[in-house]
């Protein structure tokens, strides 16, 4: 009887060891997709000043300053500026003005000043400088008074 008990106990122990050996692992898989996104935060607006010959009103002129925008993106987007369509001029200015918006960027991406669209394929954050220049041709000159223009900076 003692021998039977010992044999039964040993068999039970071996069976328990086998059960432990049968334990398995399972992988838990996580998937994630990051869609193209873009954030534009306007930090400062620009200032235009007039040139000595009064034929240029530009953020490039002495005393002028670019508007600044913070761009944060996943990449897979395009940055561009639209032609300027919304302007106001003093009543004394009755001549036409050609407006040219441009932008440049520094940071994760380096974009040399341009007026064309730029594809951004990699993620990162940049400080975008937005410039605007108004020019008059011939004998036309900018007049005394307040000018205002709106530049559209697009990320798509």
């Amino acid at each position: 009887m003692a021998l039977f008990r010992a044999a039964f106990g040993a068999a039970l122990l071996v069976a328990s060891i086998d059960q432990t050996a049968l334990a398995t692992t399972q992988n838990v898989i996580f998937n994630g997709t990051v869609a193209p996104t873009c954030t534009l935060v306007v930090a400062t607006t620009g200032t235009m000043t007039v040139s000595p010959d009064l034929q240029s009103l530009s953020s490039h002129n002495s005393g002028g300053s670019a508007g600044t925008v913070t761009l944060t993106t996943t990449g897979g987007v395009s940055l561009s500026v639209d032609p300027v369509t919304t302007t106001t001029a003093p009543s004394a200015d009755s001549t036409s003005t050609t407006w040219t918006p441009t932008y440049s960027a520094a940071g994760a991406h380096s974009i040399v000043e341009t007026g064309s669209a730029t594809s951004i394929s990699t993620p990162g954050a940049d400080l975008v400088s937005v410039h605007l220049a108004g020019t008059k041709g011939g004998s036309n000159r900018f007049a005394n008074g307040n000018y205002q223009a709106t530049v559209t900076l697009r990320c798509e």
């Binding site: 873009c38 954030t39 534009l40 935060v41 306007v42 400062t44 607006t45 620009g46 200032t47 235009m48 953020s59 508007g67 925008v69 639209d82 937005v130 605007l132 307040n146 000018y147 205002q148 223009a149 709106t150 530049v151 559209t152 900076l153 697009r154 990320c155 798509e156």
Partner: peptide, 23 residues
């Protein structure tokens, strides 16, 4: 294109309209 537009600093000499467009 569906575009979100805002001018966060209106009534300035040079305004910047931020436009985010989805396709």
């Amino acid at each position: 294109r569906i575009c979100t537009e805002s001018i966060p600093f209106p009534n300035q000499q040079t305004q910047i309209r931020a436009q985010i467009c989805g396709k």
